Computed example of a mutant assay.
Amino acid sequence: MVETQLNSLRTPVERFADLPDWSYDPNYVDDLPGYEGLRVHYVDEGPRSGAPVFLCLHGEPSWSFLYRKMIPVFLQAGARVIAPDFLGFGRSDKPVEDATYTFHFHRNMLKAFIERMDIEDVCLVCQDWGGLLGLTIPMDYPDRFTRLLVMNTGLGVGRPAGAGFDAWRNYVATTPNFDVGGLMARATPVLNEAEIAAYNAPFPSDDYKAGVRRFPMLVQTSPEMEGVDTGLAAARFWKEDWSGESFMAIGMQDPVLGPPAMRSLQRLIRNCPEPMEIANGGHFVQEWGEPIARAAVERFGLNR
């Protein structure tokens, strides 16, 4: 167990040895304004200038490894790919106190990261909490974001998320030591043992899991919760002000953020075309991600 500043833990690097289909060198930043001493990990592949950027944001309880089937397609198209791990996830540091994690703790870190990377011509690629957070970002940087690839997610605007989500939230609240890899395997039957182990890799013990425990509790399912105003402002942005290109893919087997939720989001996003439906895809639809990435690249006219 490696303890860092600000009462956080750092997953030992050997936990990430021999990850399947994951040959990307780790990159780190540990001096983001307001997060000094907390190390944020990110993948950064492809041209450093003169190319579109695919900013890939994971959700709960995954990490950037989730994008391993999509990253090669984006790179083949000549793009740059940046895939950070939120604090509490993946190779990023993990504050140990549950209360550290709030909606704006994560959102402000993401904003500081984008400003540090100083990226332009960005395609936001998001799913799950990658969307709950990521979809609120382009309204603050409308000149940076030109494209959207959105999958199985939504905006937190203070409305109930349904019985399926309530059951998930209750499960996490009553099972603080839940098996992350086992959860991913149940939700994504196509995973093999090495891939399941890769999703478990960030968490040597329950001490590292404060972030994964907190995300379900932060979803804005009632109007007084933190971030509702931000979500409502983002909804207005996507409906009225978004002028970029969009592509949507839906994992049709997702019981919470499946077709009804995504069709509602499609209607919200200005000029969003008919979604790509992944018949066998579940919530973590990136695990069926290669054809999604290829279709998005084609839609955006970026294929070489």
Score class of each variant (00 low, 15 high):
residue 2 V to Q: 13
residue 3 E to H: 11
residue 6 L to N: 14
residue 6 L to S: 10
residue 8 S to Q: 06
residue 9 L to T: 02
residue 9 L to D: 01
residue 16 F to G: 03
residue 23 S to G: 14
residue 23 S to W: 09
residue 25 D to S: 13
residue 28 Y to F: 15
residue 31 D to G: 10
residue 32 L to M: 12
residue 33 P to Q: 09
residue 33 P to S: 11
residue 34 G to L: 02
residue 34 G to H: 09
residue 37 G to T: 03
residue 38 L to K: 08
residue 40 V to A: 15
residue 42 Y to R: 01
residue 45 E to H: 00
residue 46 G to T: 07
residue 47 P to V: 03
residue 61 P to R: 00
residue 64 S to C: 15
residue 72 P to K: 00
residue 77 A to G: 07
residue 78 G to F: 05
residue 79 A to I: 04
residue 81 V to H: 07
residue 84 P to W: 05
residue 85 D to G: 10
residue 86 F to Y: 15
residue 87 L to D: 01
residue 87 L to I: 10
residue 89 F to M: 08
residue 98 D to P: 02
residue 99 A to D: 15
residue 103 F to Q: 05
residue 115 E to K: 10
residue 120 E to H: 12
residue 122 V to H: 00
residue 124 L to Y: 02
residue 124 L to I: 04
residue 125 V to N: 00
residue 128 D to P: 01
residue 132 L to M: 12
residue 133 L to D: 11
residue 137 I to N: 01
residue 143 D to E: 14
residue 157 V to E: 11
residue 158 G to Q: 01
residue 159 R to Q: 15
residue 159 R to T: 14
residue 161 A to K: 03
residue 164 G to I: 06
residue 167 A to E: 12
residue 171 Y to P: 02
residue 175 T to L: 03
residue 184 M to C: 08
residue 184 M to I: 14
residue 192 N to Q: 08
residue 193 E to N: 11
residue 194 A to Q: 12
residue 195 E to Q: 15
residue 201 A to C: 11
residue 202 P to A: 13
residue 203 F to G: 04
residue 205 S to C: 10
residue 207 D to G: 11
residue 210 A to P: 08
residue 210 A to V: 08
residue 211 G to V: 07
residue 212 V to N: 06
residue 213 R to L: 09
residue 216 P to I: 06
residue 218 L to P: 00
residue 221 T to E: 12
residue 223 P to L: 08
residue 224 E to A: 12
residue 225 M to T: 09
residue 228 V to W: 12
residue 228 V to S: 12
residue 229 D to P: 02
residue 231 G to L: 03
residue 239 K to H: 14
residue 243 S to N: 12
residue 246 S to D: 03
residue 248 M to Q: 12
residue 248 M to R: 02
residue 250 I to P: 02
residue 254 D to K: 01
residue 255 P to C: 04
residue 257 L to D: 05
residue 260 P to I: 08
residue 263 R to Y: 15
residue 265 L to Q: 11
residue 265 L to W: 06
residue 266 Q to F: 13
residue 269 I to G: 07
residue 272 C to H: 00
residue 274 E to R: 08
residue 274 E to C: 00
residue 276 M to K: 09
residue 278 I to H: 03
residue 282 G to H: 06
residue 283 H to Y: 07
residue 284 F to L: 12
residue 287 E to M: 07
residue 288 W to A: 04
residue 303 N to K: 13
